[in-house]
Design a protein around this nucleic acid. Sequence first.
RNA 1: UGGGGCGUCGCCAAGCGGUAAGGCACCGGGUUUUGAUCCCGGCAUGCGCAGGUUCGAAUCCUGCCGCCCCAGCCA
Length: 546
Amino acid sequence: MAADLRDFIRDRIRRDLDGGGAGVVTRFPPEPNGYLHVGHSKSICLNFGVAQEFGGKTYLRYDDTNPERESTDFVEAIQNDVAWLGFDWEGPTFASDYFEELYRFAEQLIERGKAYVCSLTADEIRRTRGTLTEPGTPSPHRDRAIAENLDLFRRMRAGEFPDGEHVLRARIDMASPNVNMRDPILYRIRHATHHRTGDDWCIYPMYDFTHCICDALEGITHSLCTLEFEDHRPLYDWVLDNIAVNFHPPQIEFSRLEVEYVVMSKRLFAALVDGGHVTGWDDPRMPTLAGMRRRGYTPAAIRELCRRIGVTKSENRIEYELLEFCVRRDLERAPRGMAVLDPLRVVLTNFQAAAETLSAAWHPQHPDLGNREMTFSEVLYIDRDDFMETPPPKYRRLTPSGMVRLRYGYIIICDEVVKDAAGTIVELRCRYVPESKSGSDTSGLKPKGVIHWVDAGTAQAASVRLYERLFTEANPTSANYLEVLNPNSLRVMDGWVEPAVVASGERAFQFERLGYFVKDDVDYAPARPVFNRTVALRDSYKPKVP
RNA sequence: UGGGGCGUCGCCAAGCGGUAAGGCACCGGGUUUUGAUCCCGGCAUGCGCAGGUUCGAAUCCUGCCGCCCCAGCCA
C-alpha cells in the first residue's frame, strides 16, 4: 500500500528495517492545549502513514506536562479530528500516565550525579545561562551533595515549596555552544490542578525530559518531529543515555507545513475568535481541522495534500491553489444540483401549461448515482451575472434577443428586459423553444451557452455563504494580521436551491457552474437550508477587459 | 560574532558522479448541454554564487552569499 511514497524518512525506515530493525512504532504527540490545524495534518499523515505502510502502529500520545493550559475538552477535540482524518491510534496515552516513572528516572539522575536542585530564581537562571556567543556560568548549587539534592527534590514533590523556589536541572555543560545543553531545567514546581492527575502532583516534568522517556517507554522506533527541535536532539539523547532505560529511539526532524494566506498559531486563532473576526474555532474560514471540516474540505483531500507536498527538511509554504486542487479533485464525484445565488426573474411568455417535470442525472459522468426530478414552469430564476445587456466579446450567456440553453431544460430566447424606475433590471421576458427539450431536442438550434436555473414555483429559499481568503496577503504575521484581514472573507447570499438537493441525504454537492457546497453542520435545517461554499470551480473564463 | 539546519522552474519536489522526474500554477489545443471534469501539448543548456577535482559535477572539494531555528521554570 502506498508503496510509491518516498522521502528521506521513509528511506531511513526502510534501511532500518533492512538492517534488522523490528517493526515500526510512531507517535503523534500533541499538547492538549488547542485545536488541531492543517499544519498538524502533515505530522499526522506522516506518523500514521509510515506505520501503516510498514505494518506498524502509532500512538496518539498527549504531551500534557503543563497543567495550566491543558484540558480534557482539547483532548476530545483532538481525538475527533484525528479520527475524522481517518486514522486509528494505539492508546491514547498521556505523558501524565508516566509521571511516576518519570519521577523515578529523575531521582536516578540525581543519584548518578547528573542532576541537581537549583534554587536560583527564574531571572537568575536566565542571566547565568549566557548568550548565544558567551558561555553561561555555573549555578552556585551545581555541586550540591547528592543526598541534599535527593532530599530537596523529594520535598519539592511533597509540596513543601512554593512555585519557583527550586527547579531540578540536568548537570551537563554550562559552556556548551548549544544553549539547550546549559544545564536545562527538568522539573519545575507548579501548584496547579492537572486535567487528569488532579492535585496528585505539584512538580511537573519539562518537555525535554519527558518526551524522550515516553518515546523509549512506548518503544517508539522513529520519533518524528519538526525542525525547531533539531537543537534539542542532543538533549533527547543525553537523557536517554544517562538513565537506566534499554531503548533509545532516534529523533528525526522534518519541516513543518505552511500554507499561503494562512496563519497557524494558536495565539492568532484565539485573537481572531476573540476579536469577532470569525465566529469560532470551527468557522469555515479557519485553518483548524474543525473549520475545514465545516467548510466542506474532506479528509481524503487533506491526506492527498500531505501526500503531494512530500516530506523534507526545507522550509516551505505551499500555495493555497494546491489545497484547493486536492479538494476539488476529491469532490468531483459529488452529486450535482442547481442553485441560484443572485436571482433574476425570468418569465416565459409562451409557457401556458402546468409545470412540467424534468429528470436529470445526479452526476453526468456517474449514471450510477441515479437521477433527480425538477420542475419547469412559467417563472424561473437565473443568476444575474448570466445576463448582460451589453456583453463583452465571447460572452456565452443570455443577452437581449440572445438565446441560451437552460441546463437539463429548454432553450430560451430573451425578448424583453424589464427595469424599475432606477434602471435596475427586475425581470426578463423570454420565450422558450418547446421542441428543444434537453435530451430530445429537434429544434436544430445551437445556443453557445448553457446556464443553470431553478423553478421559482418549487425552489427552496436557502442561505448560501461564499468565502474568500481570510487575509489579503500570502504572509500574514502576528504583527500585521489585523491590517491584512480580508473584509470580504464572508458573503451571505439569499438564494434558491432546487428541492431535490434539500430532500437528498447527501451532505456535499456541486452546484453546477458555481462550485462545491456543503450543508452547514450547525446551521442547516431542511426548512431553512444553509450551505457553505467549499471551493469554487476552476474558471478559465477571462473576459478581455480593455 | 556561538551552535544547528536549509538553498534544484512562480509554489512544492525527485535526483546521491554519466549529461535536470513528477505535481500544482500558468499558457495553448481537443471533447463537452457545467467557460467544470476529462484528454493532449508547452513550460529549468540549467540546479544560491565563485573557483577547483574529473573524460564527465545539481551531485565530490574549497571559499563565499542568502534564509530559517535556538538564550521559556512552553511544547
